[in-house]
Design a protein around this nucleic acid. Sequence first.
DNA 1: ATATAGGCCTGACAGC
DNA 2: TGCTGTCAGGCCTATA
Length: 275
Amino acid sequence: MPELPEVVTVVKLLAPKIIHQTIVKFEIYYRKLLWRNEVDDFKQRVENQTIQNIYNKGKYIIIELENDVIISHLRMEGRWSVEPQKQLSYKENWLEAQFIFQDGNVLRYYDSRKFGTLEIVSKATFLSGEALKNVGPAVLDPNLTAKYLYDVFRKNKRPIKTVLLDQSIIAGIGNIYDNEILFAAKINPLTLANQISLKKVENILKHAHNIIEHSISVGGTTIHSFAPQKDVIGGYQDFLKVHGREKQECYVCQTKIEKMKIQGRGTYFCPFCQK
DNA sequence: ATATAGGCCTGACAGC
DNA sequence: TGCTGTCAGGCCTATA
């Protein structure tokens, strides 16, 4: 599911429901959700802690407790939900973990594909940067300048499509927005990163900002399954220009949109607009 | 150091 | 109605 706009949407919806809530009990139903922590350790560290804040860095969701920080990644299908104990928003066999609050509501994590991960680290470790050391500046981070990107691209011989997906260079772009950004910037996805001029990098960044901001403003993109919460969907799927539009006409030049695989990812582009 | 393939999982959908 | 194969918003690891 989620790329930056979807993660931001989830965080916005979750924030008022979980900040200042105290976790009285933690229960887990899918051991591998905690890929780096022991269950007992995780449980002991979250119980009786109050949630202080929630925000995101790229596609990662950061939930701050008093002493520790929970790092959540939804991967393809992860979903968070705050709900009454007796009411499950999604299928019971998707439920992987739950945090029971003092007020009786429950913060639940569901994942139909079981790809998502949860990790807890101390605040000191988190502040050291160790936990997210492979996560670069986020798309909308003011530190992400065209000059920085240009310098990274110059040393990179991979296709631009692949480089934009590299979270250590830019955090937050996934396959959908990668396709959309390259279409907007009129750049062929196979173009090698080191062949792109500074002017074109500026253009890519400008379109990345526009597209990501627009998508955030309408609550992200819902295709396949993304839902920020039960019965709520995003709105950006109505604005997609190439993603998922194989064999349909380009809105700009009427050429048929094509699909190819780059590094195993479905890549949609207009062969005329993106030469 | 870098590029690719495989793996993690399930659900939806197309084609037979 | 199945059954089989393919594909899917991501990322990590092992191998070449």
